[in-house]
Design a protein around this nucleic acid. Structure first.
Length: 561
RNA sequence: GCGCUCGUAGCUCAGCUGGAUAGAGCAUCGGCCUUCUAAGCCGGUGGUCGCAGGUUCGAGUCCUGCCGGGCGCGCCA
């Protein structure tokens, strides 16, 4: 539809260029926008304002010339020039409802495109260290990362979802010590409890399982508790496996699945870290200072150089990060998106700098980052900080248990990533129109309910059956709905391009709202079966788009509520 | 102090690559269930888009400065 308008305009522009009204050596690309106000038609174009300087005449005059040269099209009812020189297009009613046919034809594929052309894209998200249950922040990452992945898939990309975790180093050591202390019967209140030990109840669970000789399976490995209180290494391996399994259960309950679990330790085992170090040294970007090895990240925009090998000979986290991303690049991902909490933003410049210093042809701004801001959880207007299970933070499991998976996913993905998010438990639990999740799901269920009712009356309609004469749809609400449905594909495209999944949530809220209004204002199961059938076709198209959209959010579309 | 980021109605938030009188929901006030699910609908009240400049035919949107919130500034990850 928009393309049609755009083509008409391009044709008119070309005519003006050949006539000499517009310079032939410039290219003019008309931007066709959606209108906010119906009195401005369905689409508007500002090209006359943009090009008036080049034409050397006032915008309104240029607009008039342009409109005169627009080719005829059955899709356009009328064209108006308004305000300072906007060209407003009023589309024909018949063309507005073509989308209903398209939607019912394409069904679950409606809105999807092949722009990605099968290109391999990796989305790394969550990447929590196995030191405890996933917290709300991880939940936000999981919701955003997964939704983004689904959006990219809908745009024809081949997406790999990856989870990276640190299975060695200081905090894992700390975890092992904490579990060991529990194994030996200590509690966080004891004075011998490790200074930075993990205090949550889950540590006790790990300790008990270890002592009981339980076997846990996670990420292709199987670890059995050795029950030996003094074998710290055995405790560490068991604890890591145990907590990884726990996180997997959280993610599963959340409906998120990963294709690859990447262990930091593997980068040491297969020499990737050494390889990175050697390359950086060869390229002359390293130097020794204070007994440590530094990388000249300042040459690539960092504000200070970074230590890559510590005085004690160990590497900082920064180096395996670089090695990890080199590995991603070598695996052939020309597009990589890292979804992380905003507290990681300092690593962005650093990792990119390290990758440039490798000098292996990685583009400057690679990889992409999507950083989400912090999440605060409230109940009865008060901030909730404590979870019994984790001790010091609210877990993903807490939220799923309390408000359910659909609401949790929706709320965590529905906000712009760069704004801080307040997760209101009362709101997420409420079952009224103040809760957008139920509001959208209810629209879907209502349509399904109407279909059931119709069936009781002896009329069976397939979900993708377009029956009836759509030209009988003459109401404003119906045309508005059709227009809203027609916007869905471009929404899928732009949300993926911008890496902003929240648009989807808002779009669905709007669509559901329009539907509820229409539903209340006009009955569908009426005696005039011709109109009824046409309306049902529109209903089915709405149902399909809501189902498609909710699917991309990872939220269910119930048939009854 | 420096860097990143946000600051839109009482509250929670939209506002697509700058575009035509700033939008929702909640709250508040008032209506609608003998009729397809009231988990719904309709209407009213409510905003100098943090402040001040600048760019532009046009700025909530871009630039600068200031104020305020968040995050980061470890040989922690």
């Amino acid at each position: 539809m928009k393309e049609t308008v755009s083509e008409l305009l391009q044709s008119a522009l070309a005519t003006l260029q050949s006539e000499g009204t517009l310079p032939a050596n410039q290219t003019f690309t008309p931007q066709v926008g959606n209108t906010k106000d119906k009195s401005h038609g369905d689409y508007a174009c500002n090209i006359a304002l943009v090009a008036s300087k080049a034409a050397g005449c006032p915008p309104r005059k240029l607009a008039e010339a342009l409109v005169e040269r627009l080719p005829n099209s059955s899709a356009v009812d009328k064209v108006e020039i308004a305000g300072p020189g906007f060209i407003n297009f009023f589309m024909s009613t018949a063309s507005a409802f073509e989308v209903v046919n398209t939607i019912l034809d394409e069904a679950g594929h409606y809105g999807r495109n092949r722009n990605g052309n099968g290109e391999k894209v990796q989305v790394e998200f969550v990447s929590a260290n196995p030191t405890g249950p996933l917290h709300v922040g991880h939940g936000r990452g999981a919701a955003i990362g997964d939704c983004l992945s689904r959006l990219l898939e809908a745009n024809g990309y081949e997406v790999t979802r990856e989870f990276y975790y640190n299975d060695a180093g200081a905090q894992i050591n700390n975890l092992a010590l904490s579990v060991q202390s529990r194994v030996k019967g200590l509690t966080p209140e004891d004075e011998n409890w490790p200074a930075d030990g993990y205090r949550g109840d889950y540590i006790t669970d790990v300790a008990n399982a270890y002592l009981a000789g339980e076997t846990v399976t996670a990420d292709d490995r199987e670890v059995t508790g050795k029950a030996d209180p003094d074998d710290q290494q055995a405790i560490q391996e068991f604890a890591v496996a145990y907590l990884r399994r726990e996180q997997d259960l959280d993610l599963k309950a959340f409906g998120v699945e990963f294709d690859v679990y990447f262990l930091e330790s593997s980068l040491y085992e297969n020499g990737k870290v050494e390889e990175a170090v050697e390359r950086l040294q060869e390229n002359g970007y390293t130097y020794e200072h204070d007994g440590a090895m530094w990388l000249k990240t300042t040459e690539f925009g960092d504000d200070k150089d970074r230590v890559m090998r510590k005085k004690d000979g160990g590497y900082t986290y920064f180096l395996p990060d670089v090695a990890y991303h080199l590995d991603k690049w070598q695996r052939g991902f020309t597009t990589v998106i890292n979804e992380q909490g905003a507290d990681h933003h300092s690593t962005v410049t650093r990792v990119r700098a390290g990758l440039q210093a490798l000098n292996v042809g990685i583009p400057k701004g690679w990889p992409d980052y999507v950083l989400h801001q912090m999440v605060m959880v409230t109940r009865s207007g008060q901030e909730v900080k404590i979870s019994k299970r984790a001790g010091s933070y609210v877990t993903v499991r807490d939220l799923i248990d309390e408000v359910g998976r659909d609401a949790t996913r929706f709320f965590l993905a529905a906000r712009r990533v760069d704004s801080q998010l307040t997760f209101d438990i009362d709101l997420a639990r409420s079952q009224t129109n103040e809760n957008p999740v139920y509001y959208i799901q209810y629209a879907h269920a209502r349509i399904c309910s109407v279909l059931r009712k119709l069936k009781e009356e002896g009329v069976e309609r397939g979900l993708n059956e377009c029956v009836g004469d759509l030209s009988l749809l003459t109401l404003d609400e119906e045309k508005d709905l059709a227009n809203q449905l027609a916007k869905y594909p471009e929404l899928i495209e732009s949300s993926a391009k911008l890496r902003e999944p929240h648009h989807l949530a808002h779009y669905l809220r709007d669509l559901a709202g329009q539907f509820h209004t229409y539903y209340n204002a006009h009955k569908v199961l009426i005696e005039d079966t011709a109109v009824r059938d046409a309306r049902i076709s529109l209903y089915l198209a709405i149902r399909q788009v809501i189902a498609n959209g909710l699917d991309l959010l990872g939220v269910s579309a119930p048939e009854e509520m």
